[in-house]
Design a binder for these strands. Structure first.
Lengths: 190, 190
DNA sequence: GTCTATACAGTGATAGAC
DNA sequence: GTCTATCACTGTATAGAC
């Protein structure tokens, strides 16, 4: 048996996606995932807090990217302009692999309760991260939470379109488009 | 004469709140909750899908109340007016007991990951229920989701204020106030 | 229709071996 | 620092009792 292989985390993610694609999420055990990655169950839990987390590893850094994008926007930028800058920064890191796995992941999450809960929590966490960063710029309530909500909505709506149209606009372009549409809808409400 | 005591569900909820208040959520087992309620573990799972759900039993009917409130609004009501009507209907059912347990529940949920996830999912479900009801009225996207988001935000922001100020305005009044504030903030964005 | 008894797979934690 | 072993608990399934 070969010595210690690097990239245990990514290998576990790949093994999980393969097995879950074959058997479904509920029927796949952590022991099976670890075995296919050439590791043990204990090692899996050293890399991921729980079984669900292996499917959300990609979203780990998004909160920081978005918050940094807000903080790094020009001092005179409006809240929504800062959100747009954050979306630029966050969407830029997405790879073709993530675009390919996106729909499959979405299907798995949709048909499993615990995964849907984790997804809802991640989404709420992203919104909170953006809202906090906006408040740090002096944006008041409830405007900060509202602008953050528009940003997160634009992010996810654009992701779906990006996955659906591989030959279309870039992810940053779609995110800006969706944010503009949401802004227009918000203005039309009142 | 009944062979068993009635109201098993509420008794389980009460036992759970007591025990969790004493020991914390993680340290409280389903067996303990059932025992204190004079029931068995099996019976607990007949009334609640899982351990977390015993703390969210109150939110069960909210989705339907909100959706029915949307559907029952005057045909010529704007989306936000329909949302306001739904908030009226949903907030009217809240009792003094829920106001009293609100902050305690909030504290328990905040310090426990799985409960925070369940709460995020419930919130997202309420938003989806409102958005679907708005779309059934012919409201388009992304306006329906946006208005639904404002409604849910108003609902939760008003609940916090309602719990904080026992002698203040009624819950429906606070909800309308918050919705108006969010509407103004939305208008100010664009 | 509501409750109980029992057995089971799997998660997630922990303590210790090497 | 990775593994083995073990453990309490959750959540499911199936049986039957009142």
């Amino acid at each position: 048996m070969a010595r210690w292989e690097p990239d245990a985390g990514p290998r576990l993610v790949r093994a999980a996606l393969d097995l879950i694609g074959e058997q479904g999420y509920a029927a796949t055990t952590v022991a099976q995932i670890a075995e296919r990655a050439g590791l043990t169950r204990t090692t899996f839990f050293r890399h991921f807090a729980d079984k669900r987390e292996v499917l959300f590893a990609g979203q780990e850094v998004l909160g920081r990217l978005l918050a940094d994008g807000i903080a790094g926007a020009p001092a005179d930028a409006t809240p929504l302009a800062a959100v747009a800058a954050a979306l630029d920064a966050a969407t830029a890191v997405f790879t073709a692999e993530q675009r390919e796995y996106g729909p499959r992941l979405h299907a798995v999450i949709a048909e499993n309760g615990e995964l849907a809960e984790r997804a809802a929590f991640k989404r709420a966490s992203l919104r909170a991260a953006i809202a906090d960063a906006l408040r740090a710029r002096g944006v008041g309530d409830p405007g900060a939470g509202l602008a953050a909500g528009l940003g997160v909505d634009a992010f996810y709506r654009a992701f779906e379109r990006w996955c659906d149209l591989p030959a279309g606009p870039t992810y940053p372009e779609l995110a800006r488009e969706e944010l503009a549409a949401l802004r227009a809808a918000a203005a039309a409400l009142g």
